[in-house]
Simulated assay, not measured.
Amino acid sequence: MTFLPLMLFQAFWQTMAGYLAGSLLLLLPPRAAWPLYTALVLGMLTTPLLYGRSLAESAELGLTTLLTGLVMYTLTRLSQLISLLHTTRGELARQAVTGERLRFARDLHDLLGFSLSAITLKSELVHQLIPTQPGRALKEVDEILTIAGQSLTDVRKAASGYRSFSLRQEIKTAQSMLHAAGVQVHTELSLGSLAPHIDTAFAVTLREAMTNLLRHSNATRCRIEAAQHDGWVRLVVENDGVDPAYHNAAPHSGNGLGNLRTRLSALGGRLESGRTEDGRFRLAAEAPVKAAGKAPTDLYETWFPPNGTAA
C-alpha cells in the first residue's frame, strides 16, 4: 500500500510511509526495526528524485515519513507505559496492604502473647493463694486487671497505627512477672535516648522472650541486659530453665522469634537464640541506634496517607 501507488502511478501517499515506519518500530525487535526504519526514511527521500520530483518535494516526503513514524511510535509506547505504570502501581499498593496485614498480625502476636501468658500465670497464682493468703490473692487480681486493661490499650494502639513502647518499662514489667513466678532476676541497664521505633522493637523483643520463658521453661534465674555502645543497641536475655526435649506441636506456634527477626532485619539488626555451652538459653538482639530501616507504618502511609489519597 505504501509503494504500489509509487510504482504504478508515480503517486506518493505521504502518511502511509509514516505509518509503515511507526509499525516497524512497534512490531519488530529494535535490532531490526531501527535499520529498517532508517532505510524506509532514506527510501522516501531518494525515490521521488528517481521519478523526476523536485528536491524540496523529496525532502518533504522524507521528513513526513520520519516525523509520522516517530510520533506514532512515541504515542503508542507512551500509552503502553501509562498502562504498565497503573498496573505496577496497583500491584505495589496490594503489596503494601499485604505487608501491613502481616505487620498487624505480628503486632497482635507480640502484644497479646506476653499479656495472656502473664494473666494465665497470675491467675494460677491467685488460685493457689486464695485458701491461705487471700490478701495477696486480691493484690494479684488487681494486677491481672491492670494487665488486661493495658492489653486492651495496646491492641487499640496497634489498630490505630500508633505503636510506641518503652524498653525500660517492659524491663520493669518483666521483673514483676518473673518475681511473681518465683524467678530470680538480674538486670543490667545502660541505655541512652532511643528512637521510638527502635525502642518499640526491643520492647517487643523482650516481651516475646518473657512469653517464651513463662510458657516453655522452668527457669529459676534470668538475666536481662540492655546496653547501648558504639552506635548499637543490644538486648540479651538468658535463663537456666530450657528444656531440650520441649517441642510445641500446636499448628500455629513458633512464629514469635521469626516475627522478631523480621522486625530487626528491617532495622538493619539481627537476632540470635539458642542454648549455650553451659545449658542456658540465650536470646541476643541488636540493631543500630540510627537504623536505616523505616518505622513500621512508613510503607503503609506512603501508599495510603492519612488524607485517603494514594501516593
Rank of each mutant, 00 (worst) to 15 (best):
E286A: 09
L81Y: 07
N255R: 09
P29W: 01
R207F: 05
M210V: 14
S58D: 01
K122F: 10
H179N: 15
M7C: 08
G274F: 02
A59Y: 00
R261C: 01
G192S: 14
D154N: 15
T220L: 11
T47Y: 11
L260I: 15
T2P: 00
V242P: 08
A284W: 07
E208G: 07
L213F: 01
I171D: 05
V41F: 06
H247P: 00
L25A: 12
G231V: 07
L206W: 02
L191M: 12
M44C: 13
R31Y: 07
Y73G: 03
P244D: 08
L26V: 12
L92H: 13
F304P: 00
Q150H: 14
L8K: 01
M7H: 10
A291I: 04
E286K: 06
P196V: 13
L167P: 02
L42A: 15
G90Y: 04
L26T: 12
Q184G: 06
N239I: 00
G69F: 05
P296K: 08
R263H: 09
A249N: 10
V237W: 06
H186E: 15
I171E: 04
R215I: 05
L145Q: 13
G268P: 03
K290G: 09
L61K: 01
V233W: 03
H252I: 13
L92P: 02
L28H: 03
Q150A: 15
T120A: 11
T76D: 09
E301A: 06
M7N: 08
M1P: 09
R263K: 09
A180N: 11
A56T: 11
Q14T: 07
G161Q: 05
G69P: 14
L260F: 04
A93H: 06
R106P: 01
E188Q: 14
R270G: 10
I171Y: 01
Q175H: 08
E286N: 08
C222V: 13
V185E: 11
I147V: 15
L121M: 15
L206A: 04
M72E: 07
A93P: 02
I224N: 03
H86S: 07
T76Q: 07
F202N: 04
P244N: 05
P29D: 02
R234F: 03
I147C: 08
Q150P: 04
Y51D: 10
R261M: 05
E124S: 11
S115T: 06
H216I: 04
F202I: 10
G18H: 02
L6N: 03
H252R: 10
Y51H: 11
S164R: 11
P134S: 10
K139G: 07
F281V: 00
A250P: 00
R77Q: 11
G52N: 03
G149C: 03
A11E: 10
R31L: 12
A174R: 00
T46A: 15
A56Y: 03
S79E: 08
D107V: 02
G192T: 15
S265G: 04
A249C: 04
T211Y: 12
T98W: 11
P29C: 01
S217A: 03
I119T: 14
E208I: 08
L24W: 05
S117L: 13
A291H: 13
M1K: 06
W232M: 15
A266S: 13
R106H: 12
I224S: 05
S23C: 12
N307R: 06
Y246N: 12
